[in-house]
Design a protein around this nucleic acid. Sequence first.
DNA 1: CGCGTCCTTATAAAATCCTTAAAAATGGCT
DNA 2: AGCCATTTTTAAGGATTTTATAAGGACGCG
Lengths: 225, 225
Amino acid sequence: MMPKVLVVDDDLDMLSLVCAALEKDGHQIDTEADALAVQPARCQQYDLLLLDVMMPGEDGFSLCRRIRAEVDCPILFLTAKAEEAALVEGFGLGADDYIKKPFSVAELRARVNAHLRREVRQPTHTLSRGGVRFDMQAKVAIAGEHTLPFTRGEYAICEHLALHAGQVFTKEQLYEAVFGFEAEGDPSAVAEHIKNIRAKLKADAINPIETVWGVGYKWRKTSAR
Amino acid sequence: MMPKVLVVDDDLDMLSLVCAALEKDGHQIDTEADALAVQPARCQQYDLLLLDVMMPGEDGFSLCRRIRAEVDCPILFLTAKAEEAALVEGFGLGADDYIKKPFSVAELRARVNAHLRREVRQPTHTLSRGGVRFDMQAKVAIAGEHTLPFTRGEYAICEHLALHAGQVFTKEQLYEAVFGFEAEGDPSAVAEHIKNIRAKLKADAINPIETVWGVGYKWRKTSAR
DNA sequence: CGCGTCCTTATAAAATCCTTAAAAATGGCT
DNA sequence: AGCCATTTTTAAGGATTTTATAAGGACGCG
């Protein structure tokens, strides 16, 4: 799953330099020398955009302004302008980073990778929510220093709730989430599992599962409340 | 909804400078001078962390390494070290940005806001009307800083009214909206819910539900009053 | 066969919803 | 303006629904 990056710069030397740098990280790079040729629809296939600010024809800021509303991926500016006003303007347009020339290849790679990592939900198969750490590979949950003695079903329900923290699921939805197909089971079986999960979490004084009366259950969102 | 930011730095002058800058954007700032006192559980309530790299006791890199697995908000480093190796190391630890001292206040604000902006762009189906924010996934309504203790029926009626602000609904229509069609219930039950909704909203001094005499109820379209 | 997990059933507890009834408000009428 | 019919608001109580808890049995696996 190679991340796709589009680099827009009129300076061909710069283009080849940037490409060479990013290809070391295994990204797939496309280049474009003419900002006016960049349409929003085209950008939607990329995971990250690198725009030079100063270009003949259309500059990077104008390009960003033109496509930002329809493009959701991170946008990074490359610029020689070190002026603070320009930097603030860039961020104001919805940019995600602003790399000042001259920059080192290492810094460029580090910043690009940092944004991509956050964007593509990196292949980290662990998740921490509300004081519980889930190892989705090993299928174990850890609270504090000890692993929680969850059964398979309990772990599956717990992980599903934590993965979609804040969203409410009915018992039927949770049952399906665990068994995949439409296995018509008694919803009260889910209630039983919820009870056991809460009991096992109580030892660590954490209770992240809220019940939404008449609807179902949800994992309490950490940020909001 | 004010974003919460934690700043960790041993330099008290720097702390107050950073706080003053970020508070201009309406963020809620907490500070901590001792990195060793920062625990993962504490970090989970913040939307962004600002860490100084060079600190006595534990440095920023070590702190980041210690908490990154359990914290998924953006982490930004503040540093005087301009060396490329340190920068790459910082990003390698899962950092999201690296701000070199001396930095301008404008740049600090711009970068912090850029990360917060992207963080908030999460696909949460929310609706804000008349001072009340509805999270349709979590099935909760929030006014000001606290969630409203709506029951299922109250929330459903309230959301339906807010979603179609300005449109008048009879009690029967509202009843159907909540329970689907053909649920012939006493319309006065709806009046009961309206009363409870208004009572719970009164604590926040907002009263967006108007009664149209002889017809039904509607959510005031404009916040004019 | 023993063990653990999962499901079912039964009962208690909790919360919500609906009904009922009376008080207050509104609009139309003379 | 004053009165009346209608509608809305408010209040309280019981009925209903939903959830929590506990115990027992079915099933699969080693």
